[in-house]
Amino acid sequence: MAASDQLTGPWYARITGAIHRNLTSLIVGIPFFWLLLFFLVPFFIVLKLSFAESIIASPPFTSLLDWSKGGFPEIAINTENYLYLIEDDLYTKTFLNSLKIASICTIICLLIGYPMAYGIVRTQGTWRYIFLLLIILPFWTSFLLRVYAWMGILADQGTVNDILLYLGLIDKPIKLLYKPIAVYIGIVYTYLPFMILPLYANMEKLDSSLREAAMDLGANPVSTFFTVTLPMTLPGIIAGSLLVFIPATGEFVVPDLLGGGNVLMIGRLLSSEFNANHDWPVASAIAVVLLIVLVVPMMLYHKVQAAEASN
């Protein structure tokens, strides 16, 4: 009865009536439609373009559907962009180098971040809160400016060289900026909070009684750590490592500003194929390959997240 009232009532009653009846569809439908349109469809366009041919025109690629012959369109699939990526060893080298840099940086972040997260969890009261805020603060400050800070530190006349010269350890400035070491430092620096926060969230929930029991039964701190604490914090380690590894692999700003073109990373190569060489199909093919490489770690992250959420 209520529904029929609303169908004949004034306009606003009809609208609220419609919202009432379709509430669930609206809650799901609006964000679903938006993501479908602006997230999923764009991917298929990248995929499509990666099979197109590069031409000098605007936009610089051929259409996949060739209508010129009249009647049915011919589908012109062209795998040349992918073959090109395989044949030119610049791309393979850059991919491997990105994976290597991302893995090493993930390990360094873990080595620095794990004891820090552990130290924060073991701190009591207001100080724990302040330590945590100091980890969160970099999240809210500009990524770009945090990378920029290292340009000043690593420059030929920068802070590190000043200190080393002052101490008499070197007689002339050593080159740090635009070298691989600068890229490693930059990535570890900018992604460290992404490692610490999931570790902290995991350790905070841990029950310390297991560790105490192991200690009471005579296990020394080192073996307690390896047999009790480390296995229990594994979900945090995996989540933090993936949150560093995945975006670091495709990183653009750090290799661009601190590596200055001397350090090959795939995010930067993609961007230069697109912006400098105007080879959109090759840039799209790189994006597709990068996504394929990262899809396994991404799904793993998704699984870890889902497991955490259901806990």
């Binding site: 602006f38 764009p42 373009l49 995010g267 993609l270 697109f274 994006a287 996504l291």
Partner: peptide
Amino acid sequence: PEVITGLSLLLF
């Protein structure tokens, strides 16, 4: 990776 998101939205 942001380069992928950026590229795909531009092409879209």
